[in-house]
Write a protein that binds this DNA or RNA. Sequence first.
DNA 1: ACCCGAATAT
DNA 2: AATATTCGGG
Length: 397
Amino acid sequence: MSSDDSENVILRSLEGGAAFYIVKPVNKDDIKSVWHYAVATKTGKSLSIKEIGGSGEPFSINEDVSSAINNEIRKYGTKEGRQRTEEDKEVEIHQPATKKQKLIWTNALHNRFLQAIHHIGLDKAVPKRILECMSVRGLAREHIASHLQKYRIFLRKVAERGGISSRRLSGRSLGSNLAPFSMLKNVQREYSPVTRASIQPGLGGSTIPALGGSSFRGLLSPNQQAPSNNYLFRSPHSQSLLFGNANSANGAGANLPSHGGVPHGLTHGTSPMQMYQPQNQARSYLQNFGGPLLNRVGAVGITNNSLNTNNNYAGIRVTTDGHLIRSGQMQLNNNGLSNGFSNGGHPGWMNWASNGNMNAACMGFNIASPSYMDQRGSFSSGFVGCKPPVLPTTTIH
DNA sequence: ACCCGAATAT
DNA sequence: AATATTCGGG
């Protein structure tokens, strides 16, 4: 079986010893064909290639196979890929297990993931618990296991070399500024259609109430008509299927409350792990192994990009459980890649812990204005049970 | 039986 | 690189 449907490859495969060649994705007909040839083989009619002659003669394949190839090629075509038969569709519907949609970890979903981990505690965060905590319909333990694996690798990396790659910080003066924004573009493309669609009409820019149960809408809605997810699934044939629920908010970059000077553009959800969002986790991770590594993480300050000019005062420190320790001035930089607060603080924590509209801040891309901070003076930490009352990702402005 | 997570596959 | 699947082990 191969997804390669080029005649060339098919022929070479068969010449090389394959008895039959099926172009993926396999459908019922293919199976029928397999049986056909299997039976034929058993009957005595060998379908495999003939033995190589002593001479330098090329392989010769027998007629049946040869025509089978042609059939396949005719059926599937060479360039555009095969046509889908009615039966195919049927197969897809009745055997969805075969072709599972590929989960895409959007920022919203990843944030949810992070929240779950935060809430559970990195040490106790195992797939099953995370899954429960996230309560996202359609999400499977396997999804989380996989993502968690990747996430841990990321944490490891961060822990090893003190977090931010120098390449990102200095390596490309221009690029470093662009990267985040190009990602932002992606994110916005991903969410904003829905976001806007749902915001503009009725609510006129006001606040969309957080979803009551705070549980995400289902992930898997085949034949989706109205986009209502925060996640993307990619079909096996690689079209994006669906996305965007109003509650995704963060990452869209359009959901910050316009509180004194919080720059909109700063709130974006870039690819979390790439954006070092997990820095905060990295911390607790390090904590588990004692302090020494602590100083190697972060200590960079808050990102400041062109949208925000003054007021770099944003230093707030929070304990792991969300208590405000102190606040103060902080040095900002411009490259948009720094993250959170310096070592003593808990980067990102405040962001996700309290202000539902700044979730993306976990990535160290938000600047909270003093006033905003003041208003949010204390940082709630009281998430009880596994389901936070209102997850950051569920509020949209 | 369950499920974790490294390894491996796609 | 991102996700999915496998598989030995607790």
